[in-house]
């Protein structure tokens, strides 16, 4: 295990895991309390269209995914306001079209066989240092935004109607949240892949919500849980030579079920008190 840390790619993997866990803890908490998990899933999958486009035109897939995810997140935001009752359907459609576009564009890219698996299930072991710096910047931007507008985000998330009545710009905040979700999702794709993003975005906040008393605490606990899951998953995948993204998610999944069981037992025990 310890000799693994001597390796550059392993150090980068650990750092990427930590950085992604922090953004997932913060944004995931907002995603969970605002009930936009489905939108986040849509953004993650539609981002694949951007990856395809980047390969086709020959620029960085990270940038392609980021641009595409951001654009799709804004469209989804508009849809959820304009077509409230069918927004989930439209998000589902965008979700699939985004992926299809990505696959076709990669097909059309001459002489280049992209390892699709690395985008579907992550490539934490090949995160270049330049991407780490990108993650640091994105994390800082997300953290700063959430800290500055903390009380407004709480108001929007808890009681959107009241927030609107007292003059909080609810829509711009909502779009800011979607934009930040898109950026977090793109970072997370590197670590666990676009199919598994949702788990890292939702499991730690879901567990954290149950024993925290404020959104800030929820974000902090979710980030710490995310770090634990990611590092444990990475260790296990190294030790047993398993796919790292899937191992991380399974560790988180085990955490999820253990927590559910404890909750169930507590409630049962609570009745006797």
């Amino acid at each position: 295990m310890w000799e693994a840390l001597q390796l550059d790619f392993m150090r980068n993997a650990l750092l990427a895991g930590v950085l992604v866990s922090i953004s997932c803890g913060i944004i995931g908490s907002l995603v969970v309390v605002n009930r936009i998990v489905f939108i986040s899933g849509g953004i993650a999958h539609a981002a694949f269209g951007g990856i395809g486009l980047a390969f086709f035109l020959g620029f960085s897939p990270f940038l392609g995914a980021a641009l595409f995810a951001f654009g799709v997140s804004m469209i989804m935001g508009v849809v959820s306001f304009k077509a409230r009752h069918r927004s989930d359907t439209i998000i589902g459609v965008l979700w699939a079209i985004g992926m299809a576009v990505g696959v076709i564009l990669i097909d059309l890219t001459p002489g280049y066989h992209v390892d699709l698996m690395s985008y579907l299930f992550g490539s934490i072991l090949t995160v270049p240092t330049s991407d780490l710096w990108m993650m640091v910047i994105l994390n800082a931007a997300i953290l700063l935004t959430v800290v500055i507008f903390y009380k407004e985000f709480i108001a929007m998330s808890y009681d959107e109607e009241f927030a609107f009545v007292v003059g909080i710009p609810v829509r711009p905040l909502y779009f800011a949240l979607l934009g930040m979700t898109a950026l977090s999702v793109v970072m997370t794709i590197q670590v666990v892949g676009l199919i598994l993003v949702i788990a890292l975005l939702t499991i730690p906040p879901y567990i954290a919500e149950n024993f925290t008393r404020s959104l800030g605490q929820m974000m902090a606990v979710a980030s710490i849980l995310g770090v634990c899951f990611t590092l444990a998953g990475l260790g296990l995948s190294y030790a047993y030579d398993l796919t790292s993204g899937a191992t991380i998610i399974l560790v988180a999944g085990v955490g999820f079920f253990v927590f559910q069981m404890i909750g169930l037992l507590k409630r049962k025990g609570g009745r006797h008190l």
């Binding site: 009380k151 808890y158 009681d159 007292v166 919500e209 925290t212 008393r213 404020s214 959104l215």
Partner: peptide, 15 residues
């Protein structure tokens, strides 16, 4: 996850 105090203090929000 929000306390009584943090709900009530939303009354002090303004644009």
């Amino acid at each position: 996850p929000i306390s009584v105090m943090d709900v009530a203090i939303m009354g002090r929000l303004s644009r």
